[in-house]
Design a protein around this nucleic acid. Structure first.
Lengths: 185, 185
DNA sequence: CCAATGTCAGGTTGACTGATATGC
DNA sequence: CGCATATCAGTCTACCTGACATTG
């Protein structure tokens, strides 16, 4: 959050105009740039809310994931899948959370290769306080209506599915079809 | 781009469900998470396309900005405003581009405090080649229709305006409301 | 033997804070 | 003088690659 200086015009609209003059895919370019900037705004908002608690967004997400899990613990690899982060990043994130006493490493009961990360009592308290702070910011999306948020979700969902994040899932209700189809590599 | 393993369900929908059970703002949470993931997808796609040319997305954007500028040069501060990056990051980015011979630093003709970054002939060639590679990927948004991209753009535009990125700009119609609000510090 | 799991070492990126030299 | 501009030093986060030990 430095660089404070509102421009007198929409920089993306301007970039799109110039782009369209020479190159293709100006629609995609404008959308991509918008996504990049939106992420910056959300991340800055949430990070600001979490800074006081010594958490980054990534560590907060990991903590929430464990908080939501049935046993309060998950294998590190599974955490990486869910959070879409690199295995070494998971190690790093869990290292920090463990150093803060918010998580602890356990041996998997049957598979001795895998390590479990388990949220501690302290971790659960911090999650609650952090979430209160984050919810108060509304993720920086306060100016959007529920319908607009849903629009974002719907469009981006297509993107995520195409990227191979998940297989299908019928959106709203709980009826899921395992479906062995779509080998997304 | 590691972590290959599609989940059998939509992880954001799942997180939203659990979130809604205990906390507020699950709509905002789902939208924010979607934005974070969308950015990851776009960034990974573009970075992959640019890797062969020794460019990151950030450096590519800076190069495009200079390529588009009337004189082929801009003050570093102005670049920071346009690209929404920290002043020290601009220095860093220009350092790297200069080391690659894609940009050169010049003295401002009248204000001796400011430094100009000017794109070189090499820089222009690289921009063209890089853009061809990027356009070929469609920014990873190939699966979206033009209408869906526009939806993203419209919703996110609201967000950016609220964040103080720019002031008004009449987009489609002429109705603009200056709005003295938003003291983004 | 091969595959999966987590970890470590080492490198890159970008973003931030704080301090500084210079010039308006 | 205060303010703007860019830079430097140092820190931090996250990511990646490649290697490795352990175990299924």
């Amino acid at each position: 959050m430095a660089t404070r200086r509102p421009l007198p015009f929409d920089p993306i609209a301007e970039a799109r105009r110039q782009w369209a003059d020479r190159w293709e895919a100006s629609d995609a370019m404008a959308a991509a740039t918008a996504i990049m900037r939106a992420q910056q705004i959300v991340l800055a908002t949430v990070d600001r809310a979490l800074a006081g608690l010594g958490l980054s967004f990534a560590r907060y997400e990991a903590l929430v994931l464990l908080h939501f899990s049935r046993r309060g613990s998950l294998p590190l690899g599974k955490m990486g899948d869910r959070l879409q982060v690199h295995p070494t990043s998971v190690t790093n994130i869990v290292d920090r959370l463990e150093a803060q006493g918010l998580v602890r490493r356990l041996h998997h009961p049957t598979d001795r290769r895998t390590t479990l990360a388990e949220i501690t009592e302290d971790g659960r308290e911090v999650v609650e306080r952090a979430t209160a702070a984050v919810v108060a910011t509304r993720f920086g999306l306060d100016c959007l209506s529920v319908g607009e948020m849903a629009q974002l979700g719907t469009v981006i969902r297509k993107l995520r599915m195409e990227a191979g994040d998940f297989l299908e899932s019928p959106s709203l209700d709980g009826s899921n079809v395992p479906g062995p189809s779509s080998g997304v590599r």
